[in-house]
Structures are given as C-alpha cells and as structure tokens.
Nucleic acid binder design. Sequence first.
DNA 1: CAAGAATCCTGAATGC
DNA 2: TGCATTCAGGATTCTT
Length: 288
Amino acid sequence: MPELPEVETVRRELMRRRPRGAVAAVWRSAHALRTGEQWHRRHEHLDRLLGATPGRIERRGKYLLWTFVEDHRPWTLLLHLGMTGRCEIVHPDAKLAVHTHVRLTTTDAREIRFVDARRFGGVRVDQRERLYARPPLSEMGPEPLGRDFSGAHLAERGARSRRPLRDILLDQRVVAGVGNIYAVEACFAARLHPLLPGARLASSAWERLAVCLREILSCAIANKGTTLRDYRRPGGETGEHAAALRVYGRAGEHCHSCGAQLVGFVSSGRSGAYCPREQNRPRTRWVA
DNA sequence: CAAGAATCCTGAATGC
DNA sequence: TGCATTCAGGATTCTT
C-alpha cells in the first residue's frame, strides 16, 4: 500500500519519465473512484488538463500534486493512490490494464494512466493554491522528513492523548504520509510498544520515535518502497524495502534482533506486530 | 470532542 | 474442484 516512501518514489520516477507533449485526450472509466463529497467525480474536472503540458510534481503526505501548464496557465492534478492505485506512463496503444480509470494521452505519443483495482484512490484537478488551502491538505501535519517535524511536535500532539502510539503516527493531521507499515516499523525501531497510550510515553521517547521514523522513511525511499503485493513503480518494477521490514506482517515469526516470537495485534481495525521482549517498555538508554 | 465502527472495493487466501 | 467466507486497509462519515 502506497505510503510516503512509495509515493515519493512514484513522484521521482514520474518526473523523470513524464511526457513532453500536451494533453490531447482525456479518458475516464465509468466507475467512480473514492466516495465522499470532495472526491465525487463531478468535482474531478479532468478536462481542465486538455492542451496543457505535464510539469513539476510535488508530494504532500501520500498525495501527489502534478502541475500541467498551458500558456502560463497552470492546473494541478491531485492524485491519491489509495490502497492499490498505480500510475503508469506507456504508449497509447499499450494493452489496457484491468481497472484502468484515467488516461491522459499526450501529443508525443505517450499516455499517463491511473489504474486502481479497489478504487480507494482519487483524482481531482484544481488550482494549486486552492488544493493546499482546503482539506485534506490544509489539515495535514508536517512532513516527517521536513524541518517542521520533531520529537517536540509529536509530543505536543500526542502526550495528552490516550490513543495508542501507532494510531497517533497514522493520523495524517499529526504527521503526513505515515501509513500502517512504517508506523509499526518506527515503533519497533524506537523500541516502543505500538499500543502504549501517548500520555504514558516518557518525554525523551518522543524524540527517539521522531528520529527512528525519519530513518525508516529515508531507508524505505532509498529502497524505492515496499512491495508486498500491489505496489508498483511507474515502470512496473517493485520496491525492495519488504526485505528490510522487521515486524510488519511477521506476527508469529521470530524477532531479527532477539529471537523472541513477535506478537500480532489489531487496533482501530488495523493489524500490526511487535516484539514482546524489546517493546514492552522504553529503554532507559538508547544509542542512535 | 474524541474514539470506535462502518463504509467503500477487489483479489488473494482460507475453509468446507 | 468449486463455491462461500474472510481479510487487507486510507480516508471519510457516522455513531456512541
């Protein structure tokens, strides 16, 4: 499932491979993408991209903002990959993948396609400033790899909460782009129990958690993301970070660090795992 | 207001 | 082998 490292990888590779021609045709499947008022297809406005040329791509959390320009008039495509979404750039005659929902054909014989089996993803075109000024982007917490993110920020948002640590990290309003895999992995890296209520965390542990989260995300970006099943890069390649996962999806298996049997859990309807020996309580000493 | 549940969806995995 | 059931989860909406 695409989280920050996967979306960042897609961003970089789409940037590199983006078509150089203008959008000559827009095609949309008959199926609705994600439900909810602000993503309903009557608000998609994909036709605004006609005649515009793909330009700069930004990432905010798990969202991509792809700006298309025609005669200095920019429109920005907001894209969320959901659970199973993927973006590909192919020849317009290339065989159509099942669950293809959007096709943007350009004058240089290229085609940008959005494919999403479960349709949890979404697309929308608007002015860049308006996208940033409205939910969900306006509500979103700081980028974990940016300057505004720190242990102090996490503590400010989490230290008065009874919510489990893992769920705090999953909250896009607290920190942007973190999904279940990396939230669970960050808790392990910091040797913090994922179900520990935020209010019970020692103040020094927040900084440790912030540092570990950044390291995990950076490493996953270097590995071009985690492919468990569906995630693919724009060229169809997998990401290689799955082999680096320490606890996610490994309930019942042995801890790579101490050999103890990892314990699975479900919280807020989402599964995770932890090492009962190393994550039962914060360590008193920790070496970066 | 916060926390939890339900919702959307398909395909892989599991059960009988 | 085949058919029904279960599970996976991000973000939003509804309920408690």
